[in-house]
Design a protein around this nucleic acid. Structure first.
Lengths: 192, 192
DNA sequence: GTCTATAGAAAGATAGAC
DNA sequence: GTCTATCTTTCTATAGAC
């Protein structure tokens, strides 16, 4: 790969990571292209060498985020499917995730913005959501009678739980909510 | 009550309803004060006789919406608590609710916007969320061993389910998701 | 590929007339 | 209480130099 192209790809990746972080932290409309580019030490002009519009950036940053989540990584070989899912759930319904200290789930923190976005953005969100459920089902079906209905309900619960936990500003309610979602989702899986 | 004050209250209520509808349909930042006022046949100047800022309007429209939900109304005397909850769940996880044809739940359709809003807005959201759980628990505890943990998990599931259903643009996935949440939430309540 | 400069549009909030 | 007019800021996107 030529040096210039590799350089371009590195720039692109930096822009995508910066964009997602800012979109989640402040909302799509509250983040200007200027701020995103300043965050990676570039200027607004350079942006359009990578993306044709802010909306395209949004779509790409969602796909990039989905690719980076813990769930999208390979399961470590030394632990079981059941342990892996338990670990993932724990990491998801965790205050570090809610406060964006760990890799954020675009499904939990962007839903409102996505609902009013262009079709291409909603498509990226939809694909990410479907893949999340498929991946979880592939793990859970190896150790429980879990079917699609259960994974759809569980992902709704954990995505909803994370979204609410981030929106509310009462710490006691937040930790009760996260605990309830952790325990109830685990129960559904174990009992299924 | 003087005629002018009654008139003012009527105007205020119209603005609040218009605002909520538009905020949910297009997102907080995509709705200008101009559009909200045009929607009730008034101009931007009149807005500031009712609210000091767009953010205050947001807070008040969330509280107004919470007051108007089906859950906030009295249970009809001729049906049981269990039937009432079942009916409410059905109405919530319903395509009419997702497409905003029935009275929308601010918790499901505003979470991302609220998460990046001013403390007063998040406070209104938090109070609404806590009240939703209290109200549900008051009904469910009359017929099942349902406790706070179950209501927190169930509201996370239905709020999350509604939020995702609105964000995705695949009709088949949407109806599968809503059905799963309806059935699983019902099972948790009946089994609790 | 990245920069600076700028065009063009839109928004929140205020001032003053009626 | 509601109107019109305006100030001021901010944003997306483009143009052209290097």
């Amino acid at each position: 790969m030529p040096l210039t192209q590799e350089h371009k790809l590195r720039s692109r990746k930096k822009i995508l990571d910066s964009a997602l972080k800012l979109f989640i932290a402040h909302g799509f409309n509250n983040v200007s292209i200027d701020k995103i580019m300043q965050n990676v030490n570039m200027t607004r002009g350079a942006f359009y060498a990578h993306f044709s519009s802010k909306s395209e950036l949004y779509k790409e940053s969602i796909l990039n985020a989905a690719f980076n989540t813990d769930l999208a990584q390979m399961k470590p070989e030394n632990i079981s499917e059941q342990e892996w899912i338990k670990k993932l759930l724990k990491g998801y319904l965790n205050s570090d995730h809610i406060s964006l200290k760990s890799k954020p789930c675009p499904l939990a923190f962007l839903s409102t913005d996505v609902a009013v976005s262009k079709p291409e953005v909603r498509k990226a969100f939809t694909t990410t959501y479907i893949n999340m459920n498929k991946t979880i089902l592939n793990y859970t079906k190896t150790y429980s009678s879990c079917e699609e209905e259960q994974t759809l309900a569980i992902t709704a619960m954990i995505i909803g739980g994370a979204a609410i936990a981030r929106a509310i500003n009462d710490e006691e309610t937040r930790s009760k909510l996260l605990k309830s979602c952790r325990e109830t989702s685990q129960k559904i899986l174990d009992g299924a």
